[in-house]
């Protein structure tokens, strides 16, 4: 997927300014930046929650700028949210079923990821009949990821997938995300505040600030960059 000069304007306020970059197939791309940098807006532009005021969003060479969420889902663009709001009145299995059912409807053919693989990756096999409302946070995140996978995506945008998890759970969920990429070859874009975890898992990290592109490079380069450190921590004082 690539963005070309994407600008998002809310009235007088510019949430994203002239943003261009490319997401490589099969990579894990981390997106970071201070609060209000425009990370969530960026996610929404990519997944169809918002439409660019100017510029284009391309996916597999196709201009998807004006596509809505469900149409983008049909093209293979999936998404998980910061707060895992699920189909809470049905079972875990039915959440996945919904992904499979409407994913196929949106794309017009059955998704090519077998449900067994999804269950294996997300480790939801034993909880299929549990009401989704009774699942704990980590399980909810697994369910949300599982339903997204059931739509048969090529790329998944994850908004703060590690938010609210404790250290142990973070390790566990990072492993799940890693497996999704390794086993299924799905491209992953994740917005995350936990920079250390992001550096550990991401192939590249994109930093944005005030809706503008700052840099996009390997984690060790990005996190040692003076300008990036300054954005996060403020200017160094010379003694």
């Amino acid at each position: 997927m690539s963005l070309e000069n994407v600008t998002i304007q809310f009235g007088p306020f510019r949430a994203l300014t002239d943003l261009s970059f490319q997401i490589e197939r099969g990579e894990i791309l981390g997106v970071a930046g201070p609060n209000g940098a425009g990370k969530s807006t960026l996610m929404n532009v990519c997944t169809g929650g918002l439409h660019a005021s100017r510029g284009r969003v391309l996916f597999n060479g196709k201009d998807v700028t004006g596509f809505k969420r469900h149409s983008r889902c049909g093209l293979g663009i999936a998404q998980t949210f910061q707060i895992p709001t699920l189909l809470s009145s049905v079972t875990v299995g039915e959440n996945l079923l919904a992904g499979q059912m409407f994913g196929s409807e949106a794309r017009g053919s059955a998704p090519d990821i077998p449900i067994q693989d999804i269950l294996y990756l997300t480790q939801l096999e034993d909880t299929l009949n549990l009401p989704a409302s009774q699942a704990d946070l980590l399980t909810r995140k697994r369910i949300m990821l599982g339903a997204a996978l059931a739509t048969g995506p090529e790329i998944i945008f994850m908004d703060e997938p590690l938010g609210g998890l404790n250290a142990e759970e973070i390790v566990e969920f990072l492993q799940v995300i890693r497996h999704v990429r390794e086993e299924l070859g799905i491209t992953i874009v994740m917005v995350e505040h936990k920079t250390r975890a992001l550096a550990e898992i991401a192939d590249r990290i994109l930093i944005i600030n005030f809706g503008e592109f700052v840099m996009l490079d390997r984690p060790e380069v990005v996190l040692n960059d003076d300008h990036v450190v300054e954005i996060y921590l403020g200017k160094k004082h010379d003694a």
Partner: peptide, 23 residues
């Protein structure tokens, strides 16, 4: 299918769209 789509839109509107429900 229709019932599951309805429940999906009611329980989690945005998520429903994200998994392909044509709202």
């Amino acid at each position: 299918r229709m019932g599951l789509a309805f429940i999906a839109m009611r329980d989690a509107e945005t998520f429903a769209q994200a998994i392909g429900v044509n709202e």
